[in-house]
Simulated scan of single mutants.
Amino acid sequence: MTLTSDPSPTVEAPSPGTVSSRPKLFAGLSGQNISLVGALVLVLVLFGVLNDNYLSLSNMQVIAEAATITGLLALVQTVVIICGGLDISVGSQAGVASVVSAMVFTSTGSNALLGMVVAVAVGLLVGVLNGLIIVYGRVNPTIATLAGLAAYKGLAQLLSNGRAQGYVLNDDVFVFLGRGKIAGLPVTVWILLVVAVTVHLLLRYTDIGRNIYAIGGNDTAARLAGININKYLVFVYALIGVVAAVAGILLTARTGSGQPTSGSEGLELKAITAAALGGAALKGGKGGIGGTLLAVALLGALENGLTVQGINSFWQNVAQGALLVVAVVIQQRRGGERAVGLPS
């Protein structure tokens, strides 16, 4: 797939300062990111006072490891939101990849690399399928991926008969991915950081990234400038499929088996919440990887704090829903949107 446009000028994103004025991942923190840092510090201090072990190094590593799968999905969710779309099926895609990686591993005589390659290929296929349905079927991204949420969840259950598949913790590769460390940090955290830096560089320093911002900001202007919007949309959803597959592989490595639904349930809500909290405008054209990572850290710290305090896990869903509403309200207010049904 060639992601090049006609040799006409590239459309810049609606807010140039957002696209190109910050050369580093967290340089020049925006007001929203400063708010996220403040909220994260508040959560850490609060639960640190309530539980002596909360701020221990071992618990910080637990928080980081638990947040990696959500973080991977939130990163690519940020990209698709910037492009003016949405993907509600990322959790189900991760579940399919998790099952496939484990089933191929066990059926080929414990070939971990083959299982991972097949899982990534399935993720790419699923992502491209989503993109084609949206582009050529002219289906709204929310509806298309909502259908994908159900379909891919059902596919994972059909492949696995609704049960966890295989056992991978007798394999060095899976054990290294799920439990290994490099320079004191879990391998899963390194994978998240590598993907985050890669996506950041793609968005900030390439024509592909600038055109993604332009499509989300004003697709009509982008089309008139010669940008092939269809190809970009298929590319973005393909990227989601690949990264969701990586998340599914890490889920398999962490849990020791392929998980059709139990490990991937609710990941789409977490990913969308983190992207919105991080500043990705749901109307498209605005967002960044730094804010998303801060939001992922905040969600992870909050979820862990509620858990160590023995608070009912259902309250975690309540907190996530409340944070999503707060993020959208802040976006609407900052964008000058009038209240629905009320005079401007």
Rank of each mutant, 00 (worst) to 15 (best):
L177S: 05
A301E: 09
L50Q: 13
L239F: 05
A150S: 13
I63R: 14
A196N: 02
L251F: 01
V195Y: 03
R254L: 12
Q157L: 15
M1P: 00
V76T: 12
I215W: 07
T261I: 15
L202S: 03
A214S: 08
G154D: 10
A339M: 11
V135G: 01
V118K: 04
F235T: 03
L306K: 09
F314C: 00
G285M: 07
V173Q: 04
A319S: 05
P186G: 09
L25C: 04
V49N: 09
L267F: 09
T198W: 14
M60Y: 10
D219N: 11
Y213V: 03
L267E: 08
V43G: 04
S101L: 06
P260A: 11
V122F: 13
Q259P: 00
S98V: 07
A319M: 09
W315M: 11
Q93P: 00
K283Q: 12
L3E: 02
G184V: 07
S35I: 07
V122C: 13
V194R: 00
I143M: 04
K283M: 05
S262E: 15
I82P: 01
V43L: 09
L55K: 14
L158N: 09
S35K: 01
R179Y: 05
T188N: 11
Q320S: 08
T142R: 05
T198P: 06
T273F: 10
L323F: 06
V139A: 09
E337G: 00
E303D: 14
